[in-house]
Structure formats: structure tokens, C-alpha cells
Design a protein around this nucleic acid. Sequence first.
DNA 1: CGGTAACGCTACGGGACCGTAGCGGAAAGG
DNA 2: CCTTTCCGCTACGGTCCCGTAGCGTTACCG
Lengths: 208, 208
Amino acid sequence: MGRATDPRVRRTRAVVIATALDLLAERGIAGTTIEAVAERSGVAKTTIYRHWDGQAALILDAFDSVRRPPVDPDTGTLRGDLLDLVAGLAAALSAGPAAGLMFALVDAAERDPQVAALHRREGEARHAVILRAVERGIDRGELPADTDPADVLDQLAGPLFYRRAVSGGALDRAFAERIVDRVLAGHQGRVGAERIAADPGAGTASTA
Amino acid sequence: MGRATDPRVRRTRAVVIATALDLLAERGIAGTTIEAVAERSGVAKTTIYRHWDGQAALILDAFDSVRRPPVDPDTGTLRGDLLDLVAGLAAALSAGPAAGLMFALVDAAERDPQVAALHRREGEARHAVILRAVERGIDRGELPADTDPADVLDQLAGPLFYRRAVSGGALDRAFAERIVDRVLAGHQGRVGAERIAADPGAGTASTA
DNA sequence: CGGTAACGCTACGGGACCGTAGCGGAAAGG
DNA sequence: CCTTTCCGCTACGGTCCCGTAGCGTTACCG
């Protein structure tokens, strides 16, 4: 068993996966057939079938290949952490390989249990970092002790997704900053505005 | 030209559209073929082709049939208006015909210009009501004058969509209330907490 | 340098769906 | 009642894609 040491195997798998991702972004899941991948990639259809059982397995593998372990910034302040994470998410949704695949994944997860499982794993990995940052913020007293981290997560990621999927505004760093600041203010406001002053560099940010 | 007065025509169109919506929610766009609609609906394939050009036209029509003109609550307070609208959106995303179709629509709009146009129209109709409510709130002094209504919109609708699509928490009225209150607090906090007191019945809402 | 494993190619039967044609029957409406 | 319109049915050719078989050819690996 040569594992995957054979360079021919490695190359074939890489080329096929890359082509599948291209087609997924361009034509969606329905348009990403084995035959189409074979034609565009130059890899013979029979060879693709030697590596994957069929369209479903290939697409699962392609989605999976985009997963990237998110990095915990841990800048020392809640605002700093969230700014990093939210700005990163905005960038990922604007460009990059995941930009066009996200909604295809969501839609497919609605019906296919396999895709749903992948989608759940992927989401949880992304969420874990944000939830950790929020919990650190609670420990530091930057947020009230009874803050629900899951709510904060939805408040941070939601507006970016919605803007990308529906309302269609700009997904730049300025937007990410406004979202983070408003969410923090919204939760801190429940206790008292003086908490904002406790976070150096997180003033009312009248960035016009 | 009998317009659409012939009851046979009305019935055929209604049955086919209803079946198409069923299939869309159940199998997605790719699974909603003319042949499948014909089989499930009992309407002959040839008859369907007499009314629609093909799958694309039928699906467009089906999506379009779900559109409902949103009602402007105009309760007198910003919080009251937003609560109505956001709770209504949460309910629509939890159940009803639109629940399973939303993401199929988003995904399809990513590639198909026709669907994209429909999606844009539909979004704008929903947004208009929320934007109006926010602008009324600004006029009343419930929000700072320089508040960006588009930001508020994304902050309100986004978390609901994200929760439904990814994080998977409860989409009940309590969640809608928390979101509205946090968003309002987040924007009011930029000027001063005393603004909250200006809105009768919209206290800091320590709802446990 | 020889054996093995991977690849490309052609070919094939099968299935799903497309979109149309032609016909007979039934329901609407003047 | 009688004409028009709509509908259901069967049948068809065409296309796309599936998944597999068989056979050379080439690249790797020891």
C-alpha cells in the first residue's frame, strides 16, 4: 500500500478537486458532474471513478478540502479578538474559494444528511474560536456575566452573511468594525456605558 | 382570449405551482423537474409545457408565488415596529412555505441572473418596511441621526438567517426580542443611555 | 531494469429527462 | 346545443450523464 505517496495519485486528486471547486462555484452542485470535471481537468472519467465513488463523494471531498482551521487571535482584548475574526470572515465571504460555495453548501445541507454533517462540523470549528473569545471577554468583565455567547456569535456572523446573501452592501473592514462595536455596545449597555471606557482603544469610535 | 377565467386553466396552474413548491422544498431545484412535477401533481407533462416554457420558467413562477407583501406595523414606537417585523421574519424562517426555499433561492441567485433579479426584488420589498420603521425611529429621536438604516437592517435580519442556516439555535420570539433590544442598545449607546428612557416601554429589558 | 500500479482511451448499455407531435375525450361558455 | 378550448395519453427522437469493461501506454519504485 503506497498510501498516497505515488506522485501520480497526488496530482490526480489535487487536479480533480481543484476543478471540482471551480465548477461548484461556477455552475453549482447540479452542474458539477463527473463528466464535466473530467473534461475540464483533463483527467479521464475512468480515473476519477477509480478515486471516488461518484458525484456525491467527490463533492463532499471538495467541500472538505476548503476547510481551514481558524486561528485564535487572542489579542488581549475582546474587541481586538472579535475585530480580527469578523474582518477575517468578511474577507473570506468577499473573495477566496469559500465565497461562492457557502450558499451551495447551506442549500445542499438542507436535504443531504452527509452534507449537513460536513456543514455542521465546519460551522462548529469556526464558531469555537469566536465562542472562546467571547467567553474570555466575559471572564475579563468586558461583557456581563449572563451574556449568551451563542447570541453574540449570531449577531457577529449573521450581518455579514445576510449582507453577502441578500442585502448586498459592502463587506469591508469598516463594516466589520461597525458590527463589532455595535454588538459590544448592545451588550455592555445592559450594565452601563462606563464599561466601554474599560477597553482601551474601543471608544465610541465616531468613525463618521 | 379567456384570460385566466377558464377554471380548468386556473386549477392546472394552481396545482402545478403547489406541487413545484413541494418538490423545491423537498428535493431542491435540481430535483424539481417537469417530469417529477407532472408525476406528483397528476397533471400531464404536455399540459405543463402548454403553460410554461420549461423548468426555469416554472421555478421562477413558483418562487414568485410565495412573495407576500409585508405589512408595515407602525405601532408608534421603534421597538414595537421592529419586534413585529423581526418576530414575523423568525416565524417565516421557522415554518411556512418560504422556510425551505430561502437558501435554494440564494444559491440559485448566485448563478442565474433571472433568479437573482427575483431575489433582489423580493429582498427589497421586505427591506423597505424595515428601513421605513428605522427611519421613523430616527425622526422620532429613538436613534441617533447619523444611524445607517442599512446597517440596522443587516443587524436585525442577519442573526435570524445565520441561526437558521448555520448555528441552528431556536428561532422563537424570545430570540427576536433579544436581537431587537441588543441592536437598539448598540446604537443608542453611541449617544447616551438616557435615550433608552425616552422610549416608553423599552426599558433596559432585564428579561432574565 | 523489471514488475507493478496508475493513467488515458474507446466503447458500451442503461437511465433520466427533455421537448414535441398527434389524437381522442371532456369541460367550458356563448 | 354546438363550437372552442383545454386536457390526458402514448409515443418518439435526442441529449446528457451514469458507471463499467477492456486494453494499451506510461510513470513510478524497489
